[in-house]
């Protein structure tokens, strides 16, 4: 009611003079940078760096390892086939780039293996072997694909499983999941929508180039109960019971949250924060999503 918010606004005028003086002194001194913001920024950057390490272990390393295994299998297959026809054996020195490792170096081409493979009219699995046995460093194209020189082969990164969407409606259509997020939850941030075909919808809230928090909703049957993708360990876990579901909130103190996961049996949900958000804010997001 108007009178009540007026009362609160009036009461703010009665706060201790030291809080008013704090501002006046700041104005008078011309000190216009809150140092702790810089510290917070530095902490965020440090966290982003550690997040990069996390991504390396979560995505790059498994992708490279997967391709190594594929290369070895294909090589073994080719070697065993070619040994009967006295074809030269191929050897893979190292792995090729994959979906999350577009900047990785492409490894050596074994010309003999390539020739043998063509001679044997290799099937499409040759592409993978090719990629795994290319020795020149790939050149990066503007379109994000990677092209080798001369005897190197064009490497296309595996497709990103997420589709970037122009709108929430488009993300809903692709994912097959309904989701509404009122503007109240933007806090002045911009949104990025992504969808996983038939599986999950993701809304990332950005402050410029920096992510602040992201909401995910996906099918439990497809993706399991924890779709947060956040595998960090946090010191405090808070369970909040609602009538038909229970949310697990993780953070490093009692008042703030780094992530929250919950599900209603059909849909799994998660909220992941780049910086700690007040638990009450995250609770508000949970209740908003579950009220739909």
């Amino acid at each position: 009611m108007k009178t009540d918010k007026n009362t609160l606004f009036r009461a703010i005028g009665e706060i201790d003079e030291k809080y008013v003086s704090e501002i006046l002194e700041e104005d008078a001194s011309g000190m216009n940078v809150i140092k702790s913001f810089d510290a917070a920024k530095a902490a965020t950057n440090a966290k982003k760096n550690s997040s990069g390490v996390k991504k390396f272990f979560m995505y790059y390393l498994p992708a490279v390892a997967g391709l190594l295994v594929c290369a070895v299998i294909v090589k073994s297959f080719m070697t065993s086939r070619d040994s009967g026809a006295s074809a030269p054996s191929a050897s893979a020195d190292s792995a090729a780039p994959a979906e999350y490792a577009p900047m990785a170096e492409v490894n050596s081409v074994d010309a003999a293996a390539e020739e043998a493979c063509y001679e044997d009219e290799c099937d499409s699995s040759y592409d993978m072997a090719e990629a795994a046995t290319t020795s020149e460093t790939a050149g990066e194209r503007d379109d994000g694909t990677y092209s080798g020189k001369d005897d190197t082969l064009t490497i296309e990164g595996m497709p990103n499983p997420f589709t970037d969407c122009e709108s929430l409606e488009e993300a809903c259509r692709i994912s097959g999941i309904d989701l509404e997020i009122p503007d109240d939850y933007d806090y002045g941030l911009t949104r990025v929508y992504r969808a996983l075909d038939g599986g999950m919808i993701e809304v990332i809230f950005m402050d410029g180039d920096e992510e602040v928090y992201r909401i995910r909703k996906g099918f439990v049957s497809e993706l399991g109960e924890d779709i947060s993708g956040d595998y960090n360990e946090y010191s405090v876990t808070t369970n909040i019971d609602y009538p038909n579901y229970s949310a697990e909130i993780h953070g490093n103190d009692e008042d703030t949250a780094m992530n929250a996961v919950w599900n209603d049996g059909t849909y799994a949900y998660s909220v992941v924060c780049e910086e700690p958000l007040p638990i009450v804010t995250v609770e508000g997001i949970i209740e908003m999503l579950m009220a739909q």
């Binding site: 606004f9 009461a11 703010i12 009665e14 706060i15 809080y19 501002i23």
Partner: peptide, 26 residues
């Protein structure tokens, strides 16, 4: 109410307190 507000401001971190006071006092 005044005490609640002072207690709240006391607990706020300086940067968020200053932003709050600038917005809602000034």
């Amino acid at each position: 109410l005044r005490e609640i507000l002072n207690s709240f401001l006391e607990k706020e971190k300086p940067e968020s307190r200053k932003i709050f006071v600038r917005r809602y006092f000034f």
